[in-house]
């Protein structure tokens, strides 16, 4: 009982204080709580990094190579950061980032375009319905309108038409859809806040 009540009480109390600070425009109170939260978040990040390193270090000891790469990479970057901080090395971390992380993430993102194209090409084979068709048509229109709107091989009126279609789709449909999503997220956030304040939602007990 105590084990469950104390976290709830703390969560509710902090939430109410934060809410009161924002509602009544009490920046000192809000900053105090945010400072505590940020500090806790930094500690949590540090704990997370250490936990990640420990887990994968254990896996490394068990012979897992991928975990060994991860653990060794973390340790290497940490060491380079220290050496950079101590002046032992110069731009050691940036070098590793530019030569390792940046090409890898760019390559993965390039694959995304290829995967999306292949998936779209076979969409109607898996989901031959109106949604699929609409999805496919929309994708075609956006792609064609974007590419053909500025294409030199397409007549100007047609290019403007494609530009107009693209504008309509972006400003009306996509924005409408995105607003709806944002409003839904906002309503969900409010609901979640209320649930947290009244103690119904207890993510900290999970």
């Amino acid at each position: 009982m105590i084990k469950r009540s104390i976290p709830v009480a703390i969560a509710v109390a902090v939430g109410l204080l934060t809410f009161i600070g924002l509602l009544l425009n009490l920046p000192q109170l809000s900053r105090l709580l945010l400072t505590w939260a940020s500090f806790l978040a930094a500690v949590a990040l540090l704990v997370g990094v250490l936990n990640l390193f420990g887990v994968h270090a254990n896996r490394l000891l068990k012979g897992n190579g991928y975990s060994g790469v991860l653990a060794l990479s973390m340790a290497a970057v940490f060491v380079l950061a220290i050496t950079d901080w101590r002046g032992i090395t110069t731009d050691g971390v940036s070098t590793v980032f530019n030569w390792v992380q940046f090409p890898l993430e760019a390559a993965l993102s390039s694959l995304l375009a290829f995967l999306l194209l292949f998936a779209g090409a076979q969409l109607l084979r898996r989901q031959r319905n109106i949604g699929g068709v609409l999805f496919l048509l929309t994708a075609l229109l956006v792609l064609l309108s974007t590419a053909l709107a500025t294409s030199r091989f397409i007549p100007g009126r047609l290019a403007e038409t494609f530009g107009a279609v693209r504008e309509v789709i972006t400003t009306i449909f996509v924005t409408a859809g995105m607003r709806g999503i944002l409003l839904g997220v906002a309503l969900g956030t409010i609901t979640l806040g209320i649930r947290l304040l009244v103690g119904v939602e207890r993510p900290y007990n999970k």
Binding site: A113, L116, L117, F118, G120, A121, Q122, L123, L124, R125, R126, R128, V133, L136, A139, L140, L143, L144, T146, A147, L148, T150, S151
Partner: peptide, 25 residues
């Protein structure tokens, strides 16, 4: 980028037609 987008649109269009008239997987 525009050439890739045209290719993608073309692939999607062809792929859609092919998939639409092909046997459902």
């Amino acid at each position: 980028q525009h050439l890739a987008q045209l290719l993608a649109a073309f692939v999607l269009l062809i792929g859609g037609f092919v998939s639409a008239f092909s046997r459902k997987k």
